[in-house]
């Protein structure tokens, strides 16, 4: 068996099954850090990772009667957590769909050939750029890109002219592109390369 429970853990799991909250807390202390780290790797968000830890341990408490003390507990946590992560990942992917489209739009407008790995940086940075937009512009942009409303729909909804809406969306796109690419995709590329090297150097 790969993940054999040590003797203390076997005892804690038996106690947990009996409803012992102190044993539960010991297991929480032992695994929450690892689980948090793992979830963050996949969900790329500290907040989401925290939620996974919470939900997973609540589930463990709820289902404590069904835990098999002969099976590795580490594996049990993994199974519970991954199911939670799966749901969260897919929900988020749906929400983030517009960011992928936006990426394509921005690339079309750019004359530079994109570096493949840019995408991960883009995904990490685009939210920040959207947040930086002025309030009204941000609202229009999100209605259009994220909620998928058409320009005439937004115009009616906000009681503004379609021309204004279009201008706002164009301005928003430009601001995001400028923010992301720092007006020059090569500048960002260089920065990323430097960062990567820095990380590699640190590791070695």
């Amino acid at each position: 068996m790969k993940w054999e429970n040590d003797r203390e853990e076997v005892r804690d799991i038996a106690l947990l099954k009996a409803g012992d909250i102190d044993a539960f807390e010991r297991l929480f202390e032992k695994y929450s850090g690892t689980l948090n780290h793992f979830s963050q790797k996949i969900l790329k968000s500290g907040h989401d990772a925290d939620e996974v830890v919470q939900d997973a341990f609540l589930k463990i408490w709820e289902k404590r009667y069904r835990i098999d003390p002969d099976q590795p507990f580490r594996g049990y946590i993994f199974t519970i957590a991954l199911n939670i992560i799966r749901k969260k990942f897919l929900d988020k992917a749906r929400e983030d769909q517009f960011k992928v489209q936006l990426y394509d739009e921005l690339l079309l407008a750019s004359t530079e050939e994109p570096e493949e790995k840019h995408f991960s940086y883009y995904m990490g940075l685009v939210d920040e750029e959207i947040l930086k937009l002025p309030e009204k512009r941000k609202q229009i942009f999100i209605l259009h890109k994220k909620e998928g409303l058409t320009v005439p729909e937004i115009a009616t909804y906000l009681n503004l002219s379609p021309k204004t809406i279009e201008n706002q969306i164009t301005a928003a796109l430009k601001a995001i592109r400028d923010g992301l690419f720092s007006k020059n995709i090569k500048g960002l590329y260089l920065l990323i390369m430097l960062l990567c090297k820095g990380i590699v150097l640190k590791k070695s």
Binding site: W3, S32, G33, T34, H37, V53, Q54, W61
Partner: peptide, 24 residues
């Protein structure tokens, strides 16, 4: 699963461990 397995045996409780514990 392999990735999880190869991960460190135990990562120390995270920064906001206390807050998380309280929430649970």
């Amino acid at each position: 699963e392999k990735y999880w397995e190869e991960g460190k045996e135990s990562i120390p409780p995270c920064e906001n461990y206390q807050a998380l514990r309280l929430k649970v």
